[in-house]
Design a protein around this nucleic acid. Structure first.
Lengths: 167, 167
DNA sequence: CTGATAGTGTTATGTTATAACATGTTATGA
DNA sequence: TCATAACATGTTATAACATAACACTATCAG
């Protein structure tokens, strides 16, 4: 049952996202990817991904562990960290460094260098596409340094929060 | 006694920096800044800054604490974190999120949004200037979201390390 | 002198992450 | 088919990073 996205007037970047769509599609995409790559989409991995994609907000490793515990899985720390590492390797989960938290990827299709917009009040996070957002993060002119991974995070206050109160 | 920089052939970005100069200047700059702003450059604050600027490499809070202890200061965690927060507020220290570590700022003059290039092998870090490095990190087209702070880190392997060994 | 502020110190604890090793399960190939 | 390798999960313990809460001192404005 896919939700249709409702017209909204709030901060576009945080809402420009059909989450019902996203959930179903995301599960399908990850299944296909794992099949194709001959990797195991085990119950544990599926569960961790579902936990992340269902909230679609950043969760700390220990929050994920609690959720795992509630669902009958082991909840000792290495369980979460191992699965998260695995899902990150394959681009289905990103770590938000500024929050020590993990979030399901919004764009598992592209192999991208994601950028995140983080509201420091509500801690909502939007993963923005380089092109759509107007960010351009050009390959830097750094002699002989091969960039393997980029971390780009922008922190501020989202429209909803800034409307709700003066800082 | 200011060291003159020797001709080198290693990764430019990590070496394009006169550290002898940097140390002396940095101390002077921070002193002036604090004077001007009527802030106290206390022995503890000075020591923390000196520890960071003298190595000019990222140090974890607990490494800084050890150094403080060796120099006769208290080495309980809040000491380091408080001073680091203070120095970060004023732009003399940055946190490298990818390493949970702190580094003295290379450019305390400009109020900038720094970007860091990190070698994942030797953990050397270079703070790069947007313009010099060719990075362009344009203000993103995000409706009504005011970016207060950016984190930009690029991880890879520096020339020295990649020459030293195949991955 | 009094009360406010800032700086430092201390104890205790909270939070995040990993090391090291054990167990089960599946695939491979001699 | 049996050894073995590779992978996935589980467990215990601990490491590494960070903050809360409160105490003490010094300085300074009123």
């Amino acid at each position: 049952m896919k939700k249709k996205r409702e017209g909204k007037t709030t901060s576009k970047i945080f809402d420009d996202h059909d989450h019902g769509m996203c959930f179903d599609d995301a599960i399908e995409q990850i299944e296909n990817y794992f099949l194709k790559k001959n990797l195991q989409f085990t119950p544990l991995r599926r569960k961790v991904f579902e936990i992340l994609i269902r909230d679609h907000k950043p969760l700390g490793a220990y929050e994920i562990l609690e959720a795992l515990g509630r669902d009958g899985f082991s909840s000792s720390p290495p369980i979460a960290y191992r699965v998260l590492d695995f899902l990150m390797e394959h681009g289905f989960v990103h770590k938000i460094q500024g929050l020590n938290a993990f979030i399901a990827c919004s764009n598992p299709n592209h192999s991208h260098s994601p950028a995140f917009v983080i509201c420091r009040k509500c801690e909502k996070v939007a993963e923005v596409d380089e092109k759509k957002s107007g960010i351009s993060f050009n390959s830097p002119n750094i002699d002989n340094f091969e960039v393997e991974k980029t971390t780009v995070e922008m922190t501020g206050v989202c429209t909803t929060c800034s409307r709700a109160a003066t800082i």
